[in-house]
């Protein structure tokens, strides 16, 4: 599903040049669950942003399916993101002015081909899936951390993406809530959704099929935990 060839990301200022990613070569197959690990500042989040088409590489190639992402316009990338990728963030990133149901619906609003009634149905199903349907009218400030992250997961899956990118999804949660979130991600992966997750937690990385280690922007090791 994802092919990275000699992927590089360099941040330049007037005085300093920093290589956040250096010559990353990686393939992710459909239905795979990848955990990306490494110390702080090694480039994990940069890696995820590029894979999620929220940022552009400086060099190398990025193939999403059979499509080369390089040189695509922002509109084309938005279209790809919308149709193919769901995001789960460490800090949940729910919109305070929208309630739970509206936050989840946000991921469907920009799909012109999905009618209002279908949006409502999908939102209902997604909230039920993560067992937060009873809080549909609540505002994010009224939820616990674990509940907010479940809403974020519902938002990530409501558009039925092929790929979920999770950036330290359990980083702000206690162990019980963290486990719940990992269970959900594993379930989604079990249904065929490819998951790429950045994590600091070794125990949560164990849920993945493959663990990829980054160090100073380079991919240093890979280990297979489970056979796909």
């Amino acid at each position: 599903m994802i092919t990275l060839k000699q992927l590089t990301k360099i941040y330049r200022t007037t005085e300093v040049e920093t290589a956040a990613l250096r010559d990353i070569n990686l393939k992710v197959t459909v239905g795979e669950f990848i955990a990306v690990m490494g110390p702080s500042g090694c480039g994990k989040s940069t890696f995820l942003n590029i894979v999620g088409m929220l940022d552009s590489p400086t060099g190398g190639e990025y193939w999403f399916g059979d499509q080369n992402i390089a040189g695509r316009s922002e509109t084309q990338l938005s279209e790809l993101r919308k149709n193919s990728i769901g995001f789960v963030f460490q800090s949940f990133n729910l919109i305070d002015e929208l309630n739970v149901s509206e936050n989840v619906e946000l991921a469907l609003l920009y799909h012109r081909d999905i009618s209002r009634s279908e949006r409502k149905t999908r939102v209902h199903d997604a909230l039920a899936r993560v067992k937060i349907g009873h809080r549909a009218r609540h505002m994010p400030q009224q939820l616990s951390g674990g509940q907010q992250q479940r809403v974020a997961i519902a938002r990530a899956v409501v558009s039925r993406p092929k790929l979920i990118l999770a950036d330290e999804p359990t980083g702000n949660l206690d162990s019980a809530n963290g486990e719940e979130v990992m269970q959900l991600l594993t379930e989604m992966n079990g249904e065929g959704t490819t998951v790429v997750m950045v994590t600091h937690s070794h125990s949560h990385a164990e849920y993945a099929h493959r663990i990829v280690n980054l160090l100073d922007g380079a991919l240093v090791t890979e280990s297979i935990r489970q056979v796909l």
Partner: peptide
């Protein structure tokens, strides 16, 4: 900023 970034992440174009 957060709201806008999120909207972009779920597929909103700059025009929208």
């Amino acid at each position: 900023a957060r709201e806008i970034s999120l909207r972009k992440a779920v597929g909103a174009t700059r025009r929208q």
